[in-house]
Nucleic acid binder design. Structure first.
Lengths: 228, 228
DNA sequence: CGCGGCATTGACTCATTTCAAAGGTGGTGG
DNA sequence: CCACCACCTTTGAAATGAGTCAATGCCGCG
């Protein structure tokens, strides 16, 4: 169980073309602040923010995919949040980021909101203040959901719960999931080894719980068999 | 791996006497709202709020210990947050609580803040709004910390990381931890079986990483051996 | 066409779950 | 006051699951 050696760097990887944005045009929280936001387009593997750096921005993912993670002393990597279009991130309880965030796909676009300025605006804009709180609650929900997935007993159940959660968050339809991340990233998200992720997927396939179309497309056939 | 049959109910259990409150008199966020708060004293096992119920309150633990959890279909219980004095809880992204919260010790006192009223006050009190956000970030940090603990490979390392996290959150001093919860609750927190929790503790003791005084008092002898 | 990243599969080892049993502790009721 | 009972903790043995090491094949990009 370890972060794939090359998952840190970026070059020469087959570029996974992301699905169309999940909520491309839908109005969102902070929309009124888009004039204050700096848009950044990232390439696969590019760092958006680093652990220990001064937490100067809040972020919103506009398109693509990103992962929030820590690298452990033993070389393993733990993903603590998977970021899809519409998700906010970059919250820190203290003055520094506790985690790093990295783009997973090319053409990952993030809106960067200068924290100080937003906080100042919130001082006179109660509605904005409420939206900040709501966004923090959303982040809390995502991590709690991940915690429940990690809490499952066997690896196939973890992978199954992960697929169900993805189906919920994505808009591919309730029975179709296009995996936004590699097996290696799934392993780092679920805190299991890559081999176990792979074996779990083939196991679920053989048991008729899912069907695979290529490497990235999963059809949920028997939902109960996934989280049972 | 399962919630102890009796951990759901409450009666007839040896009453664990909690340590003195962690931050008994220190000023805290929401302090200005204590006039709006309803104080409730709970007995061990008493439910503070239930999953699916309308999320009408935010809470702050004043003394004692509480656990936030979900019961799974297979009978296992996953604790998603361990609540110590000073901690806020009861946040929900939607209109209903996603989790249940239950007192772990007798004489657990919680301050209940009516959510609607607080939100209304926050509309005209930007500082309060900021404190709500800060409290949400604290909750996020706690769950992320738990996620990192669950992400460890072996059970002894999970238990070790749990002890270190407890030592950080408690004020027993950096080398002394008085366990606020039973082995069963630790198991439900770490998503491992009770037997494995017990074995991990004796393992850590034999390896000289910790020393045990009674069942509940742990002295951290070799910190590096715990999270190595 | 070859390289780097990605995915799958096999064999082996070791950790954890599960099932079983025993001892300890503190309330509560007889 | 004592005995019972529910809860808590620990230990053992067997079975299962996951990690590790190793090898192979795939695919896109340069």
């Amino acid at each position: 169980m370890s972060a794939y050696p090359g998952s840190v760097s970026s070059q020469h990887a087959p570029h996974y073309v992301p699905r169309s944005t999940v909520h491309p045009q839908r109005p969102h929280r902070f929309e009124s602040l888009d004039s204050h936001a700096v848009m950044t387009r990232c390439r696969r593997g590019q760092t958006i923010c680093s652990e220990g750096r001064s937490a100067e921005n809040w972020y919103r993912l506009k398109s693509g995919t990103a992962k929030e993670y820590v690298d452990r002393a033993d070389g393993r990597r733990q993903i603590v949040d998977l970021l899809l279009p519409g998700n906010f991130f970059g919250f820190a309880a203290g003055e520094e980021y506790d985690f790093a965030v990295e783009a997973v796909t090319d053409n990952t676009v993030v809106a960067c909101y200068p924290r100080r300025r937003i906080e100042m605006l919130a001082e006179t804009d109660p509605q904005l203040a409420g939206e900040i709180t709501a966004v923090a609650f959303e982040g809390l929900s995502r991590v709690q959901a991940q915690l429940l997935i990690l809490g499952r007993v066997t690896a196939p159940k973890k992978v199954g719960a992960f697929l169900i959660e993805l189906a919920r968050r994505l808009s591919d339809g309730p029975e179709r999931v296009v995996l936004p991340i590699s097996r290696y990233d799934i392993a780092d998200y679920l805190a299991i080894s890559v081999e176990t992720v792979s074996r779990s997927l083939t196991d679920l396939k053989h048991r008729g719980a899912i069907a695979l179309s290529g490497k990235r497309c999963v059809k949920i056939v028997d939902r109960d068999a996934l989280d049972g």
